[in-house]
Amino acid sequence: MNTLQVLHDDFSHWKCTKCNEQLVFAPVELVYLESKFSVELPTCPSCGYVLIPESLALEKMAEVERLLEDK
């Protein structure tokens, strides 16, 4: 599965509160209605907490959700 790169901003100023680690881009699997994507997202390297920024949720993700719902 190809890993998609949808975020191009710098997320180095984000930290995981619990692990006190800086977030780094890591491949994350997103699943909806039997479809699976691998996407590079800011993630805590220690515990794996993934950040979905507001813009991603409201734009690209919402659009893909709509498309998959109509499939």
Partner: peptide, 8 residues
């Protein structure tokens, strides 16, 4: 969002 995240 409705999409589910599977952590690494």
């Amino acid at each position: 969002h409705r999409m589910q995240i599977l952590p690494p």
